[in-house]
Amino acid sequence: MSETALTIDDVSKKFRLYHERNQTLKAAVMRGRRVVAEEFWALRNITFEVKTGETFGLIGANGSGKSSLLKILARILVPDGGRVHATGRVSSMLEVGSGFHPELTGRENIFLNGAILGLKKRQIVALFDEIVEFSGVENFLDQPVKNYSSGMYVRLGFAIAIHTSPDILIVDEILAVGDGSFQEKSKAKFRELTRQGSTVVMVSHSLPQVREMCDRVAWIDAGRLRGVGTAARVTRDYEKDWERGEQA
């Protein structure tokens, strides 16, 4: 339990804010060599560790930078300073079903999406029935996914992602998916994952959910780390700060 799955070492991320949408050649030529971008640090010197087998939560207000941090952990964004070290295979679920092709069937999309998430074909074949069962779309497997209801769509996407059994799973607000019974099933699956030694890092806006699922939590505020610790302590601090803000 005390091994480290993720080391986030002094990570900073800078975005350039343009005052106009200048993704045209004309704008670039007119601008010449002047830089009219304003720099904005979304994250500043974030350092913490995530232990193997724990469920780790990231909390913070909208725009605090927690989603940017999540994307850095998922290797989608590259930090401008510091480094991230991951032990094992990282898989991310920032939006379920984002790799689906609408005209392809559910069956074809399971293979497509499974491959994008890093599975070999024979692994997908082996997991196929389990994925279909979990998602509950067996009657619609040979329909194009564009005919799926939004619930079916996300359930299938979630089922594929959760069955890839990565060493480290990066999750964004994912438990808002599906109806009550599906959410219960999802939570059980997460617990099973961590019992098997996988590490889960999640962003959530629901503090009760964070307290229920996470072992430890990091609180990000305006791009800086405000606290790391047990879920109970950090969420309490966060709530206190939030109440102070209300009163002021």
């Binding site: 994307k71 989608i76 991310s92 939006e95 984002s98």
Partner: peptide, 9 residues
Amino acid sequence: ASLITKVYF
């Protein structure tokens, strides 16, 4: 774009 901003590969 939707794939690139959501999954790493």
